[in-house]
Design a protein around this nucleic acid. Sequence first.
DNA 1: TGGATTAACTCAATTCAATTGAATTATCAA
DNA 2: TTGATAATTCAATTGAATTGAGTTAATCCA
Lengths: 388, 388
Amino acid sequence: MISTPLQQGSNAERSRHRNRQAVLGQVHLAGAIGRAEIARALALTTQTVSNIIAELSDDGMLIEKGRLSAGRGQPAIQYALKPEGGYALGVEVRPDAVFAALLDLTGRAVTTERVALARTDPDIVLDHVTAVYAHALDQVPRARGRMLGAGIVMPGPFGLTGIAGMGTDLTGWQEVDAAALFSKAIELPVVLSNDANAAAMAERITGAAQEMNSYAYLYFGAGLGLGLIHGGQLVRGAYGNAGEIGHIPVPGPHAKLEDAVSRQSVQRHLLAAELDVHDIDALDQLFEQKNAALMTWLDTACDALGHAVAIVENLFDPQTVVLGGAMPNGILEHFVANTPLPDLSVSNRPHAPHPRLIQGASGRMTATLGAAALILNRALTAPLSHAH
Amino acid sequence: MISTPLQQGSNAERSRHRNRQAVLGQVHLAGAIGRAEIARALALTTQTVSNIIAELSDDGMLIEKGRLSAGRGQPAIQYALKPEGGYALGVEVRPDAVFAALLDLTGRAVTTERVALARTDPDIVLDHVTAVYAHALDQVPRARGRMLGAGIVMPGPFGLTGIAGMGTDLTGWQEVDAAALFSKAIELPVVLSNDANAAAMAERITGAAQEMNSYAYLYFGAGLGLGLIHGGQLVRGAYGNAGEIGHIPVPGPHAKLEDAVSRQSVQRHLLAAELDVHDIDALDQLFEQKNAALMTWLDTACDALGHAVAIVENLFDPQTVVLGGAMPNGILEHFVANTPLPDLSVSNRPHAPHPRLIQGASGRMTATLGAAALILNRALTAPLSHAH
DNA sequence: TGGATTAACTCAATTCAATTGAATTATCAA
DNA sequence: TTGATAATTCAATTGAATTGAGTTAATCCA
């Protein structure tokens, strides 16, 4: 589970690979863009970008979008990502179900699926994931042969740690190389991640943080998770377990953060008021009804969330903090509007270019889509070089 | 103050630059190493590495160290960094003084200096820094023309933030482009950073974390700071203010972390016991005497530090946490030995390859040396590419 | 002791992917 | 209509890597 990131030298082939990624990234960022502009952004010559664009068009990853006239000079031919140019599979393995989504190159979900899971042994899970993948390819035959890879979300933390066995992790997966197993089963490059990290990446590909390179993401899952993006890449930590913010002790009535802010927390709180709430829709209904028990929970949760924001801001100094996850949209909105933003923070600046707290994606599929986004990000982002 | 990291494409020249960095990095890491081994580590051909080594030797950055026989085959000629091959200036600007150090390519300090500072206006500071630099070059004439750059540490946070004006930041610097001013004054590439981030990098270049790519560093300065290294690079945050861990509220008797763990904290505590302690040596003496007031402070401080470790471990999942800064060595040792390591942490793993908490550099010059290390790291580390 | 084996190293030729420079095209502005 | 501007293309060049065929210096083993 230790990721030993290969320190690699560069040669012509690897340079071209990097430049292709960077060009795709610029196209993705701009939506539609001309070659000369890409060349300026990447400090390459227009000739080079022309060659790369021709190659990418040949590969079916780009389409022409006509010319855009901007003042004097010949109008630039605009290029955009061709949605059918590549696909990423996103899979989320939960204790009771497997979720899957197939995203096209632009990040749009072309098919999604959920299958129930009776047991979580590796064999069973691998079978289901393989089946789900096969089914997705049947649904979208044009994706065959154009798969970029699969992002797979599993409940963290990975490996044996002090917060394992807290109920969220899967039995039977503690000591196996999950990425290798999946990769062998579905014959695709696989990126493994926890829910929060994946969801964080989704915001960069399709969501609220597309123009941002450094941001933090607070994810409502069973617990509370954190995803960190720095320099356009996920900060995964040495063993892939970065972002376990839920287990941090906080001042206040609760022992740790996710006792105050999480789906489990609200369920427990509502149960004490004799309300047995199991899914997002039921929660949404209570929220629409302004249910008193829910409202008191929200108050404490907002305070605790403010605390989480304080920690994250002071530790990472992000451009913004995105709030998302498996919660009703209305409740996310409520959090964004009512979480007290700490004064004592490096992010409390007078002319901040971004709001300190913004709303991200919501709903059941958030992490599943994020899983696929991990793959898309790899295709669309070149690791940035420190300019000198 | 916003760092917009340039997304750059690659070409032959930039590839070579990257490969030179990577080769130097391998040599630095190994101490002495042969070309074929470097080639394997970087996935380059031996011929390429041969060419680069020849170039670097011509440039005076490497020296031959004889042959090392290792089993069969022709013994490899070993290469090592040539100390005189390059120099980095480290400068720390404090409210009352400017510290400077000149490090050679291997990270050894060849000259250090301290000059008192009456005022901290940019003009005054720039004059002093320029003078200190000139003096360093006089002391070490061979460094002339071989300067790689200057790392400059100033009290953070940079820019206008919610924790500005807390007494640590410098007056007159809030709204200037400090890096540009320094760079113009001393005519060197400049990297700006706060004390904790710089000190963190020092551990990677010369200290306790040379083989690590992902670790956290807790720094005792006036307050308590955090430095994060991920993938061999500093996590600076969007505005360069990442790591302000001291301002985080913690459970316990103190409002925020650095009320319990910092130089100011211990000074305040000792003052209540009628002990006026101003420098590290005096503190060390008290520690040697097992002074009762100091010991009670240490007890609370250890608990608070354990809390900081819990946060850092769960948020970053680092290989280790390094403890260092402007404290007597004995006290750092005490902290490393007595800080309670939280059970509820992703770093609490059964077969951890590294201790969870280790001791880093201590003493007054820690951040100054770290400042120079920022420059050396740039020369010795190529940004890592995610292998595919 | 001496040949086989192994691995590091060198030289020359080749290849890849960038840059350079000159020419062409399409639009805007006067 | 004409000149300026900027995007684009084509052909030649360059820089830095790889490839492939030797050469050298050590260990292993008969």
